[in-house]
Design a protein around this nucleic acid. Structure first.
Lengths: 134, 134
DNA sequence: ATGCCTGCAAAGCTTTTGCAGATGC
DNA sequence: GCATCTGCAAAAGCTTTGCAGGCAT
């Protein structure tokens, strides 16, 4: 049994063709994919999977923490495989390029800000909108 | 002529009843309102304004930097009057309370992170999800 | 065999757009 | 008077849901 199959089992999900295919697509693709991106790849591969199933599977994967979903600005949601290391995103407002980064200092400051208000940090969402330097 | 009328003029917008009403509602309300919230207040006030106009006016206000739009998680977009001082948001994941904060240090670090990748910071979106300390 | 899973189509929800008439300047 | 603006309704874009049949275990 393949490791991706185990990941599905561990998440309490039956090992079905759509789920396996979608997991593989996420593993072998660019970082961020919309449900439609994934759907088109399935069509390309002659797999007969409906867009509704793509959304359902992605929602299940998200609950199981196999993937993370992001809502950049407006536009459709994008999904990325959860590879364990937390990171934030930087989006170029001109080209749409997405860069990932991680900064321990910024995370620490966030914790302090929350604490200053009597809270503890559970999660956060940080997106920098940037432009190429001239 | 009222100051809110001047704000509209300055933005290159004709002073029309829907625009004045929407601006007043934003001035006199809780921090974050959806287009529908605003629409309902207009209905309440017996103003005959369509939801399409609310969206159009809010988009114009956003272009004119009179309001800021945020997309928290999914759900509808929320709008808030631009009162000049930039701030970020902290949302309590248990009560839904929204707290505004501003931290110059975090802004500076963001600028540095962008610069480190050859970009300049245009804007950012930071939301902390927090929980009351025990 | 059974309960979970899927495709299809239809509906849902938020937001945008086309158009003919109304309004501000 | 003329361009801009507005309400209405319809469409668009993304996502969810109901249902009848299919598949994994």
């Amino acid at each position: 049994m393949k490791t991706s199959d185990k990941e599905l089992k561990r998440a309490g999900l039956k090992v079905t063709l759509p789920r396996v295919k979608i997991l593989h697509i996420l593993e072998q693709s660019e970082l961020h994919m919309t449900a439609e991106d994934i759907y088109l790849r399935l069509i390309d591969a002659e797999e007969d999977v409906g867009i509704a199933t793509v959304y359902r599977v992605l929602a299940q994967f998200e609950s199981a923490h196999l993937v993370n979903r992001h809502n950049f600005d407006n536009g459709p949601a994008v999904y990325e495989l959860n590879r364990g290391e937390h990171h934030d995103h930087m989006v170029c407002s001109e080209t749409g390029t997405v860069i990932e980064f991680h900064d321990p200092e910024i995370e620490e400051i966030q914790r302090r800000i929350a604490a200053r208000h009597g809270y503890e940090l559970v999660d956060h969402n940080l997106v920098l909108y940037v432009r190429k330097q001239k």
